[in-house]
Amino acid sequence: MANTKRYVITAITLGIIGAASAGIIGVTNLVTREKIKQNEQNKINEGIAEIFGHNSTIFNTQSIENEKYTNTVYFVKADEKNQYAFRADGSNMYGKISLLVGFNELNQFKGISVIVNEQTYASTLVNNYINPMKEADNKDDALEDVSCGATYGAKLIRDLVNDARNVVKKINAKE
C-alpha cells in the first residue's frame, strides 16, 4: 500500500515538473517568436543592401512554388533599375544552407549573401569560397571554381544559384 502511494507521488511530481517545463518553454516561445522572425527579415534586408548597395528598396515580393521548392523572389529597385534577389534554400549531406542570390536587370549573376549556414564545414566554405566570390570581378568564374576544401557545399551553392537563374529567366520571359 505504502509502495503504491509512493509510486503515485513520484509519477505526479514528474508529471507536474514536465508540464511546468512545457508551459514555461511555450510562453518563452510566444515572447521570442516575433523577435526571431524580425531578425531573419533584418538579415534579408542586410543581404539585399550588401548585394545591391544601400540605395536599394524591395518593392514587391512573390513566392514561387514548383515540385522542387517553395521560395521567395524579392523585386528590388536599385540604381533606378528593376533587379531581383532570390531566396534559395537547399541541403546536402553536410546540412542545410539558405542564400540570397542577386541578379541585375540583364539576368546577370550579381552576388550572394548567406542567411543560414548550417553546413558542417561552414567556416571553410565562407573563407575559401563565398568570400573570394564576393571580391572577384568575374562572379560567374568564381562561382564555377568549386574546389575550396568544402567542395560539396560549394557545389550546392553553385546549383542553387543556377536554379535561381533559371527561375528568374522564366519570370523575365513572362513579363
Binding site: S91, M93, G95, K96, E118
Partner: peptide
C-alpha cells in the same frame, strides 16, 4: 536536426 539532414545522412 539543427542542420536539417535527411534520415539517411543523419544515420551516417
Amino acid at each position: 536536426t539543427d542542420q536539417g539532414l535527411t534520415f539517411l545522412n543523419a544515420l551516417a
